[in-house]
Design a binder for these strands. Sequence first.
RNA 1: GGGCUUAUAGCUCAGACGGUUAGAGCGCGCGCCUGAUAAGCGCGAGGUCCCUGGUUCGAUUCCAGGUAGGCCCA
Length: 1048
Amino acid sequence: MFKEVSSQFTFAEKEKQILEFWRENDIFQKSMEIYKDAPPFVFLEGPPFANAPPGVHHVLARIMKDAVCRYKTMTGHYVHRKAGWDTHGLPVEYQVEKQLNITNKAELEAYGVQNFIEKCKENVFQYEQDWRQMTERIGFWVNLDEAYITLSNDYIESVWWVLRQAWDKDLLYQGHKVQPYCYRCGTTLASHEVALGYQEVADPSIFVRFPLKNKENTYLLVWTTTPWTLPSNVAVAVGEDYDYVAVEEGDGRHLILAKECVPGLFGDEPPQIVENYKGEDLCDWEYEPLFDGGQHPEMSHYIVSGDFVTTTEGSGLVHIAPAFGQDDYEIGQKHGLPLVQLVGPDGRFVPEVKDVWAGEYVKDADPKIIENLDGRGLLFKAAEYTHQYPFCWRCDTPLLYYARESWFIRTTAIRDQMHQHNQQINWYPEHIKDGRFGNWLENNIDWGLSRERYWGTPLPVWVCDDCGDPHCVGSIAELKELGTDVPDDIELHRPYVDDVVLDCEKCGGTMHRVQDVIDCWFDSGCAHTAQWHYPFENKEMLEQAYPADFISEAIDQTRGWFYSLLATGTLLYDKPAYKNCLCLELIMGPDGQKMSKSRGNTVDPWTILNGQGADAMRWYMFTATTPWTPRAFKTEGIDEALKKFMGTLQNVYSFFVMYANLEQVDVLQDAPPVSERATVDRWILSRLHTLIDRVRDEMENYHLTNAPRAIEAFVDDLSNWYVRRSRDRFWGAEAGPDKHAAYATLYEVLVTVTKLAAPFVPFLADELYRNLVCSLNTEAPLSVHLAEYPVADVPLKDAQLEADMDFTREVISMGHAARNRSGIKTRQPLAEITLGGLSDAEKATVNRLADLIHDELNVKAIAFTENLDAFAQVTLKPNFKVLGPKYGKGVQAIAKAFASADAVALKAELEAAGSLQVEASGETYTLEPSEVDVQTQNREGFFVEADARKFVALSTELTHELTLEGLAREFVNKIQNMRKEADFNVSDRIKLSLDTTSSLVDEAFQVHQDYILRETLTTVVVDTPGENAFTVAQKLNGEPATLSVEQV
RNA sequence: GGGCUUAUAGCUCAGACGGUUAGAGCGCGCGCCUGAUAAGCGCGAGGUCCCUGGUUCGAUUCCAGGUAGGCCCA
């Protein structure tokens, strides 16, 4: 016996019970243990931050990972599922600063680095409980209790080891780089951080006269949008190949600028050109520094050539300040120009500057500098310039491009290897490989690793105070060996490691650590190694678990985690870090706009989890769209998943359980072999095994949308065709082979579908499985997640039968349409349908499945006709696909000829002669039958449904017999309704009485009495109804009849 | 500004090696069923396949250029 299936439940409640069951029985642990010795499938979890509550996009990522892992487990793999937490980095510091009301580094230092670090540790797990609850509730099986945590000593030690490997390979170096810098945060920003903060702003746009040396009254016209960098100017760049001119300004002064820029700057009154130059002519010309203090030991203030110079904006002369621009810095290196840095790390002019803007914040200095230049007659023009400018994504401070000392990983040295490894990765969707990710690798620059911050993995580089020799420490053991008085339980964070001093091996001097911490992307990028505390522990583990088979994160990780994993993996092992990468797109709000609090279009996952439940949310996310398409998240979509798929499956399941219990059928016994079962049985089993192959194929290719969509289509067929066509086999029928076949078939199908769907809807699947399987077999695995994924039984697949069924259903659908048009209800039997336009093979198909058509359309006979014209409107069209390649242009002429010809006559000619002569554009074409398409269309006034090439026509004439039979069906229908209204039980036997003045009704009742009594469980027919009888005056097809029913 | 990507019915999505009647679900309308009932079924109406140009006998499909959305980068 199966457990009764109540109709009083919510999926969400059931899910909670299943969760309880999983917990109590350690199902997750068991699902790993049973495959302990099986081939591993390596999943690597991308660590999230737990300092904010999880959102729907996290749910998306987690269920995708979960479905793959569950599938791989069920197909016989050991899938270790270690969770991870990302913990370091600026976002955490920023939150803590806000909480403590700290706005700059000085305040932070005053508060105390140690205190600050401790606060960061708390902050980082602020929402861990939320994450745990969400993770469990959505059914994401991952082991949170053995999570790797990037702030742990073990993890950091492994990262240090990785850095040491880079150091030993000369891939870790210190350099200068102009970097986007936030003076408020006191740190440079990584490129992906910069990208977060572009805003449109208006900056000053000024054209300045630079006085030339040795050329009276002649000036270079130089453009800049950052006046504050002018005091640090050391050169001016021109384009070698551009044309430059000196123009007369009107007051005797001459201005040199690019020829192409003249119209833009002088407009309608073109100045007089007094001289022409090529860019290269101007090189090495010297000019006067704009401000005092502009003298340097190195040669400076002359014209150089730069390939970045354009004439589309500005003047074709570019001001060079190597400390404040990447191009500037590079050209400075090339020419040995001095690095003039008149701005401090606090974003203010250094006190050494003698001008009024000393100590000023640079953007505030802009107007003063402009005023100064204007006062000296050096300002040619000042305006505003609107452009995209980066701001600090945390504090909204405009970033400065600023040369800082910085540490780098020389990724450019391994670019080719990274490219090769990328080629070996399967990307989903595929275009990421050579598109977004490939492009990014091609344009790779060295990884700016260091951050001048506090909360992160400390850069393990110590530098000697005396001789300046640097050393990179690769382990705690080494630290203790080289350091003096290193505490036994040293914590590898600032400020603790800052206190450790080493003895210099070169000169015996004292070494202090470089103050920087590292980019937290490097932390998570080491996950493949550091999660195992490799190489200090788990040596054999790494060999097994590298590279990962599968990772999945959102697409914004292309330049984040996807990259950092690949870079570190290439650096360490010269192998790709992962084999398959599923890139998820972002989730938009219901309005299709990016989800954000400020827009108010966020969706709280808990509302859904507590309402429709986790499975519904999962199913929606899997099936609504491919995960790599940005999706608008709609709760109506979840309702649809709930009704369409889960509701349907649940209904079939409860239908099965209800009758299996009622009829006491032993589904495991007495089932005839499949070959002896009914056609519908063989059909649904064939469909099932085709489905198994399909789902496996899709899953092997990480098509997590196609697989469940195929399951959904199957369940629809199961419910709306198999069960619908087989209903009476389950309850009315005598016990016997056919009844057993029906039960056995539906049982097999349900159990198999349950397993197929388990990776996607783990709760519902287990609910069904445990009742269907575990109720009968105590030896069976406790949970569907411990069961094996179905394997197709190839001999059960019957492609012909499936195609036949598709065709038959198409015919039936057209028959329904014709009936609808006729207005004759399905309950009324009709004598015949006529089918036209069918091939011989199709006729054979119809004959094979004729029973289905008879039943479904309630017709007595099926006839075929070749006389299409008698029922439908016939047209002839050339078969373009065949004729196109053959006749080219002629096709259009033939089409025209067909359009104006008499289709019926042409068709007759074609049939009589076996071919067709067509005159078109003066030529005669001979067409074979295969080159002509006969098409049909509905014709008015017939109960006919035609599609492009066939039709179904209905005979609507009713004989006396058919009328009586229709009435009999009416009887049954009305009586059944009355039973229900009177609240009788399904199995109650009744007394029936009939009172009618219609001889037709009376005759129908007499002729079909057996049928009527059987269908309505009537045991006694009485002349006069009893006192308690339930009596209704009915109309049966318009004929009066008063019916009474009463329980026996 | 550059790269990648998307654009098909009111909504969410399929699809077509280029072939002349482009599909599904939801929603809507009409009807059916009532022994699967927080149901179920059938039918119908909905489309300039984003725009413009090109290639072709034929383009919604291929190519180019736009427009709009998304992501990434400057």
